[in-house]
Computed example of a mutant assay.
Amino acid sequence: MLYLEDIKLGDRFISRKYKMTLEEIQQFAYAFDPQVFHTDEKQAKDHPIFQGIAASGWHTSAVTMRLWTECFPVAYGLIGSESTIRWPRPTRPNDYIHVEVEIVEITPSKTKNDRAIVSYLTQTLNQNREVVLISTTKIVVFKREFSAVSL
């Protein structure tokens, strides 16, 4: 587990690769984002932007979250306070995606000296190193001396 003392500006974390299958893309879309460019191969081919099946951006985000938790093991979890997100290109069936995280800012709490807000830039890339998701996220990170009493 990583504590605030273990993290510094410029630190980088890289995840394993994850294969986005057609079946998983369709299952996620049927459950959470049922649009034809996520669910129907034939109709997706005629879409003016996607021109084929594309994973929901929320699916790509969910996989990104999974990969974050594996490669960036922050003590007490990734407690988000803010995030911006963009999907500059679609994630496709059989893409292998991975996450690259870089610490870009550490802001100590003004009221609690046992924690800080850590900002990190995430790029989720496919097998061709094309960015399919980019985000800046702020999380709460605790020092080793953290006590639940100070909440």
Rank of each mutant, 00 (worst) to 15 (best):
F50V: 04
Q51P: 02
Q51T: 04
G52L: 12
I53G: 13
I53R: 01
I53P: 07
I53T: 05
A54L: 07
A54W: 02
S56W: 10
G57H: 07
W58N: 11
H59K: 05
H59P: 03
T60D: 06
T60H: 05
T60N: 11
A62I: 02
A62K: 01
V63K: 00
V63N: 01
V63A: 03
T64F: 04
M65V: 05
M65S: 05
R66L: 12
R66P: 04
R66D: 05
L67C: 07
L67F: 06
W68H: 14
T69Q: 12
E70W: 00
C71H: 05
C71D: 02
F72V: 05
F72A: 03
F72W: 08
P73Q: 06
V74M: 00
V74K: 01
V74A: 01
A75T: 06
A75N: 11
A75P: 00
Y76H: 15
Y76P: 01
Y76Q: 09
G77W: 04
G77F: 04
G77S: 02
L78V: 12
I79A: 07
G80W: 05
G80H: 12
S81M: 11
E82F: 10
S83K: 04
S83V: 09
I85P: 00
I85A: 13
I85T: 13
I85C: 15
R86H: 10
R86K: 15
W87L: 13
W87E: 03
W87F: 15
R89A: 15
P90W: 09
T91K: 10
R92Y: 10
P93M: 07
P93N: 05
N94F: 08
N94M: 12
N94D: 15
N94R: 08
N94H: 12
D95T: 02
D95F: 00
Y96D: 13
Y96W: 13
Y96V: 02
Y96G: 00
H98A: 03
H98N: 08
V99E: 01
E100I: 14
E102L: 06
E102C: 03
I103C: 07
V104H: 01
V104L: 02
E105L: 09
E105F: 06
E105M: 08
P108S: 06
S109K: 06
S109I: 03
S109E: 03
S109W: 05
K110S: 09
K110M: 08
K110T: 11
K112T: 07
K112C: 11
K112G: 08
N113D: 10
N113F: 04
D114E: 10
D114N: 15
D114T: 12
D114R: 01
R115A: 10
R115M: 15
R115T: 10
A116C: 09
A116W: 13
V118L: 14
V118A: 02
S119N: 11
S119P: 00
Y120G: 04
Y120R: 06
L121G: 01
Q123F: 09
Q123R: 15
Q123E: 14
T124F: 02
T124S: 11
